[in-house]
Amino acid sequence: MPTPDIAAENRSPDKIPPKSKLGELRVENLFFTYDEQKMALEDINLSVPEGEFLCLLGASGCGKTTLLRLIAGLESPSGGRILWRGRPVHGPSLERGIVFQEYSLFPWFRLRDNVALAIEKSRPETAKSERFQYADEYLGMVGLREAAHKYPHELSGGMRQRGAIARTLALGSPVLLMDEPFGALDPANRMRLQELLLDVWSCSSPGRTVIFVTHDVDEALLLGDRVIILGASPGRIIGEIKVDFPRPRNAETLFALDSFRELRSEISSYYHRDARRQIAGESIITSRQEGI
């Protein structure tokens, strides 16, 4: 049985179980502001052990993408720090591969060349022909070996995302960051890619850490070992849930479980309460502005 553990709003760093495993990723007292005043993220503390599949769940605008970009090193924190294997993160690194929601592949390169770019970086000693061989292998993992010679615009949205996953896998990053990678896909495609991702993740031998951003409760529960719920304005952690459903999981059997449905409704209500408070807050402001 999964044990819902929705933590209190005021999380302090000492409540995080102390772990200093080698592959751990830590976020300590992280703040992020943009435009000098608007607080996007406030005092985020997080510890992700090696091999964990962590989902960041939150409504749009809560800063979950910003948090992921900070972890990737694409943005710099305004306060606090991010540690990967005990070393602070400064700028992007091949150790933390990222898949975006859309447009990850370069449209002027064939699928194979897109993946080969990653191999050139992760294994610079390889010859060009070897790189193509490896690229085809990674494309095979996501079922795209046949499409290797195609350009991104000749592929469907789902195939493009699979290609983006193959390219990020080819980087060989021990940490995989995913920013709503299936958010732009239709439900059937999304389900297929979720299963594919779980397959690829469970096959990766040393245990890849995945940090997966989503606003979809079902997706978070299907994929994650743990779900962190983010609230908005400012972005902060409002809850955390350990997801103990046995693996391998698949959507059909999981969604039929009573325990899944209980957990789902619990999270949904928790998650929506914050969103409603948000909307209520906004509407008060609007009515004040518009009123009289």
């Binding site: 990737a72 700028g91 591969g97 975006f100 859309e102 990850s104 970086k121 980087l171």
Partner: peptide
Amino acid sequence: QHRDNARALG
């Protein structure tokens, strides 16, 4: 997004 991808690919 192209810039981000290039940076992420090192």
